[in-house]
Each structure stands twice: as structure tokens, then as C-alpha cells.
Amino acid sequence: MLNKSALNYCKNIRKKIIFSIYYARSGHVGPSLSCVELIYSILKLGINYKKKNRNKFVLSKGHAAPTLYATLDEFNLLKKNELKTLRKVKSRLQGHPDKKKLNLVDTGTGALGQGLSISIGYSLGSKLLNSNNKIFCLLGDGEIQEGQIWESAMYIGAHNLKNIIVFIDGNKFQNERSIAETLPEKNLLKKWESFGFKTMRINGHSLIAIEKIIKSFLKSKNKKPILVYCDTIKGKGVSFMENNNKFHSVKDLSEENYRKAISELS
């Protein structure tokens, strides 16, 4: 399913992220560009929006909303020109995902650290309903500094909630500086393993690697909940934004930068 056209889709999604943030005159461009392949693959392979009772996607790092919106648009699930309304009053595309306004969003998020707990709620709900739904949760690598993440990890491990898969968008930066400068991670995968997860580390821009993991998660009888640490590049796809934390959150992306970014992606 993920072939050459998937690469084009991801390119288009990146263009749409840049375009919508340019129009909004603000937005988290760097951390949106780092999780394009992840969100595209999760939605494409894991979520069937036509079904009522379906798998869930919890975007815990809610500031990557532009990626979610751009992907939904790429799948023709938004209205024409709706991306131009990002971050505007009365828009369905609020600065952080708002479930009340856009019902394709499975969970409104924004204050970090909460999505994994909500994923547990979905997981338990699915079990009570005998519906065998799977839950995809995407965390930021800075986000896991929140204590609630570890409360959730402890619960998921203790109850072996095998219908949850957690992806960490490991772009190595957070709001102000790099993770290493802020609060370095030590033995991250071992930590998750000790809580009862099966862990993997992949290139988070490799569509093939992500596809393999998602397909096996959807098919197989998993023995444990899964944690996938994804090495990604903040600002991926636009040379001057890559690993440049000035582009974590932009105010007023200049026309020059906008054109440069679009031409690089074309």
C-alpha cells in the first residue's frame, strides 16, 4: 500500500503544513514536519474513518495539529480550502486539535502528557465492548518528561494492554532547546521495557519500516503493548528548518522562507 505515491503524499502533506502555517501566520512547523510519515502511515493503514466503531488515533503531541489536518486534507476528509482557516475563529482547525469542532479528531489535546492515559481509556472501552479495536498513540520526545506519561506506562504494563501501540516522535528537540540540553534521556528503551512494553527503534521517516510495524500490530496476536522510538528530524524536508529549533514554533513565516520551503518540497 505504501509505494512511490506514498512518498508523494508525504511531500504534499509537508507542503500543506507549510502552506497552512504560512496562512495562519503562526504554528509549530518543526515538530509538525518531523511526524509526517508517522501520522500518514497511522491514518492510512490504521484508521478507517468510514467505520463508526473503529481503531483510534490519539495525537498526544497536539501541537502537531497541522500534520493531522494536512493528512486529513490529503485524504479528502476536509472541506475545500479549509486548510486556509487554520488557527482562526470559527474554524474546525484550531491551534490544537478540538474534537468538539472537528469530529474526525479522536481526542482533543494540547497540554502535554495526557494522550497516553486517554489511550488506556479507549483500550479498556474496547475490551468492555469486545470490539477488538486498536489504539495508536503518538508522543513527542520532550513530552515524555511529563510525569503522567509514566503513570500511564505503569498501568499499561501492569495490565498488559496489548491493543495499544505508542510511537515516540524522537526529533531530539523540545520547545526551547534540545532534549540533551534540557533533560537528557537515559536508557529510554530499557525504561519502557521494564514497564512491560516490547520496544523497537526505527527511522521515523522510513515509510517501509513504519508500515511493517503497523501491519504486524494490526494482524498479529501481540503478546505485549508496543513502544516504537522513532528517530526523526525536526523540520524534516526543508533544509533551513531541519534541526533548527528557531522553527519549533514560528510567528509569521516570511514570504521568502515560505517560497523557499515550497520550492524545496516541489
Binding site: 492515559s117 488506556i120 481509556g121 503522567q148
Partner: peptide
């Protein structure tokens, strides 16, 4: 773990409970 409990409650509610 009250914070986790709040999120779990939210997820269960969005599952129809």
C-alpha cells in the same frame, strides 16, 4: 495516580461509557 485516572475516565467516556 489521579492524573492517569482522569485521562482513563475521558477515554472510557469517549468509548460510550
Amino acid at each position: 495516580a489521579e492524573a492517569n485516572a482522569v485521562g482513563i475516565a475521558a477515554g472510557l467516556s469517549m468509548s460510550g461509557f
